[in-house]
Design a protein around this nucleic acid. Structure first.
Lengths: 154, 154
DNA sequence: GCTGAAAGGAGAATGAG
DNA sequence: CTCATTCTCCTTTCAGC
């Protein structure tokens, strides 16, 4: 848990954009040689700063043309209700984000689907039929202006 | 643009979870040998189905403890206003998601910050001071239940 | 801590069957 | 798709700054 120095941040910035870059090139771009570069990356991985590596798939190319943000309120806040909702979210691959949030509603979900009809069907038949959702408000995405996995590192 | 077969989908599913897996292991897990596996992956990359590879960084580990979703309405919908807002979003690394959405507001942003104060400061001094935001509603994230880059592939 | 070099082994990438 | 081959890159260890 030792804080990141400027070199670590440079490595992370590069790897966030190009996760498969060979250590040699990474080292060259960050201005150090391969041995310490390799050691640093390994440390970042082991300490959990780098949670993993992922291929980023284009949603359109796999036929997922529709997405929406859905505000959700539960019927109550018993342990059992929350547990069931969490389990549902975890197990449902169409839900790609879920956070409990401040405001009038309990959760904000991000849902992907093939088309608006499929999304509506998912809302009606999978979420609302759970029997634990009191109310929901859906915001369909008209245009995705930005969507990045890159976090700012000051 | 040829549609994905089951083997492609299996490769994508694996690579979405482990983007740095060696081709040999990937091939073994998907049940084919290395050459055709490598060729398929290359095709997926070139055709844009795989947009790229990224190291996933743990937000907490780099001191980003706070995030929020922000609904935003612009003062007007002139080309100039929209252009300025888009440019701002694109250039601002703390904004990790931005979509224009249906509903009462124009945009929904996802913003990350060091702490709630830094987030409030970002909203007040960077977004609202643009002079083109009419109204905004902020939902602070209390708990991130799910956050994945993995898309469902049917 | 860092660099540079060097070595063996692993994996990427291609061509032919 | 399999097989075989070439060549790049990874990974480790050493030396020395």
């Amino acid at each position: 848990m030792t804080p990141l120095d400027e070199t670590d941040k440079r490595l992370l910035a590069i790897l966030q954009a190009e996760g498969r870059l060979p250590i040699q090139e990474l080292a060259a771009r960050a201005g150090l040689s391969t041995s310490p570069c390799w050691r640093r990356v390994r440390k970042l991985e082991e300490s959990g700063v780098i949670r993993g590596y992922a291929a980023l798939v284009d949603a359109r190319a796999v036929g997922l043309l529709t997405r929406a943000y859905v505000h959700v309120s539960l019927v109550d806040h018993s342990e059992e209700t929350i547990r069931r909702f969490d389990a549902f979210v975890a197990q449902e691959p169409q839900i790609v984000e879920c956070a409990s949030v401040t405001g009038a509603d309990d959760y904000l979900l991000k849902v992907v689907a093939r088309d608006p009809e499929a999304l509506e069907h998912f809302l009606m038949h999978r979420i609302l039929r759970l029997g634990i959702v009191r109310a929901s408000t859906t915001h369909f995405v008209l245009g995705q202006k930005k969507e990045t996995t890159v976090l700012p590192l000051d």
